[in-house]
Design a protein around this nucleic acid. Structure first.
Lengths: 110, 110
DNA sequence: AACACATGTAATAATATTATTACATGTGAA
DNA sequence: TTCACATGTAATAATATTATTACATGTGTT
């Protein structure tokens, strides 16, 4: 298992999933969140301070990113015994071009 | 000038432009429009029939795609003498991965 | 007990996006 | 002149997204 266990496989992305990914990346704050999480995983409260938005708003953005499978979360108990929810960026690589869009189009439900 | 004259150069895309591109591609109908225009350029009324939506709604979608520079338009006078506005897909290729998002993040204005 | 820090969500407000309808204009052909 | 087909947009309605505020709950430290 040399390769990363949770890399998003661009071959297996359906049209609907691709639209979800574009939607997730269509807001500047979510780009900033992805960039921040790429450096290092963070727990929600700390991440909210880092990107300078309220925690409820951050939750909303994280949910979009998570439903697009661009981040993943895990609850952990710190040494202090406090519950902390960590978010990490998922590795992925998608070559976006007209050909991909054509393929995506064929697997979209309307 | 062997290479295409209007290929979108992914090296020169700013963070704001990238967000615009993601936004343009975040709707199933716009994916369908891109796929349709990749086959062949079309004028607005014909395209509206092909993708089965109203012309005003199509205009809205086309404006988003055009402002993201994914399509381009040109007015032409047909043999019959009627004005027709043609839209064509622009060639592009963007490798989307966390590294790109980090670079984009650094050039986003908030 | 009061404080600092954590998760989580409900309710609402403010904005933006998406979609429809109706209209105005122009051309060429029947 | 009426018809078929084209562009273009204004006004509005319906939905969805984004953002804020206020709460409830739990843990460890002072």
């Amino acid at each position: 298992m040399v390769d990363s266990e949770d890399k998003l496989d661009s071959e297996l992305i359906s049209g609907d999933e691709l639209v979800k990914i574009f939607d997730a990346l269509s807001h500047p704050m979510r780009i900033k969140i992805m960039a921040t999480l790429k450096e290092h995983r963070q727990h929600v409260s700390e991440l909210a301070r880092m990107v300078n938005i309220s925690r409820p708003l951050l939750y909303m953005h994280l949910q979009k990113l998570e439903s697009a499978k661009l981040v993943k979360s895990s609850m952990e108990i710190s040494e202090g015994g406090k519950a902390m929810k960590f978010y990490a960026a998922v590795e992925f690589e998608i070559l976006v071009n007209p050909k991909l869009l054509t393929a995506a189009s064929e697997s979209i439900q309307e």
